[in-house]
Design a protein around this nucleic acid. Structure first.
Lengths: 198, 198
DNA sequence: TAACTTTGCTAACACTGTTAGGTAAATTAT
DNA sequence: ATAATTTACCTAACAGTGTTAGCAAAGTTA
């Protein structure tokens, strides 16, 4: 019986190797030039072996983008837990989001890429929702604190999320096209302004 | 001498045919599955002919995305010219932007795709800037009207643009992942709120 | 009419994702 | 321990990709 267990473990090891190699290749050469044969080369197996572990290339990219979400959510939770007030929590969330995008462009592009071959419509509902839920909870707390209209929490979550994500997307996707006046301080000021008007 | 002119005209015709065919294919099957051979097939030429008109595939996608910008800017100018006040201009701009994204998803994905093979960093500075300039001018007018701080116009342009683009990107990229509470009325309310706080 | 340029083709190269089929090794059953 | 069976892994191949080289025919100019 333990033979089967060992085999499963070994399979898991190769699976991890595939993901690790793929991520490394994406980081070095961009996701456009990622190929099954390059992954196979990196893990020192022949190409078809990869199909024993993943249905297709898209499934690999999908799993990587899910890992990205896990990492981002973990970073956010860590950052939030250190804060003393909901307002500081919201600031810490934005800071973490921005730093994640900046330091992990490959992940970010896979996770939020418009028209990405993997992780398209309807595949990221849970990961996507988790992020939105965190924002929602913090905003609710601030609204309670400020005693403004609690019913607007939902709308405000979307508005907040739109602004933060829009800023980050523009910066990551088009860094060279963006005027110098659009920099991180704009993001900071945006958060301050949004909190003021919650 | 007029022979050369005719030849240039004929070249232009084929060039246009390539772009048209490519755009049609992108609209029908998505940009991922666009291929030189498919374009060649559509225009009833052999594949290498395309390289007499474009350096490579990326150049075709680049030109298409530029056409997209031209169309979007033209739509915006048309919509703005019909408005009576800067506030209505801003609303019309957002409305046009949103409708453009909705009706021309292919264009939008090419124009603003995070990590798109074409139109990456540094290639869209002018088109990108033109859009931002329009927003800037309207916002300045509103600020003058409201007699608030004119120096904040630049920051507010970025913040506005971030929010609008973020909302649209999320909707276009992830329509199936987005909760039902995030709909066009959120966009409307966002614009109203932003104008209020300019 | 001869020389030259342009046009457009086929064939090919080096890739891509993916599948079929076979072989040798590892595991299980007898 | 031997036979049967499953698993692991490979090579070869298919159909497709972007792109280039080289050639033949047509069009243009001298």
């Amino acid at each position: 019986m333990s033979v089967a267990e060992r085999k499963l473990r070994e399979k898991e090891v190769i699976r991890k190797k595939i993901i690790d190699a793929a991520l490394q290749l994406v980081k070095n050469e961009g996701w456009e030039s990622l190929s099954i044969r390059k992954i196979a080369d990196a893990i020192e197996y022949s190409a078809p072996v990869i199909y024993d572990h993943f249905a297709n290339k898209e499934a690999i990219l999908f799993e990587i983008s899910q890992d990205g979400f896990k990492l981002l959510l973990s970073n956010i939770h860590k950052a939030i837990s250190k804060q003393a007030s909901p307002r500081q929590e919201l600031k810490a969330l934005v800071d973490t989001y921005w730093k994640f995008a900046l330091k992990n462009r490959s992940y970010f592009k896979l996770m939020f890429g418009v028209g990405m071959p993997c992780c398209g419509e309807g595949k990221m509902k849970t990961e996507f929702g988790a992020l939105q839920d965190i924002i929602y909870e913090i905003i609710k707390k601030i609204i309670v604190e400020k005693k403004t209209n609690i019913e607007s929490a939902c709308y405000k979550t979307h508005a907040f999320w739109s602004a933060i994500h829009g800023f980050t997307s523009i910066m990551i996707a088009r860094s060279a096209d963006v005027p110098q006046t659009m920099n991180v301080s704009v993001l900071d000021q945006m958060v301050v302004n949004i909190i003021e008007n919650l």
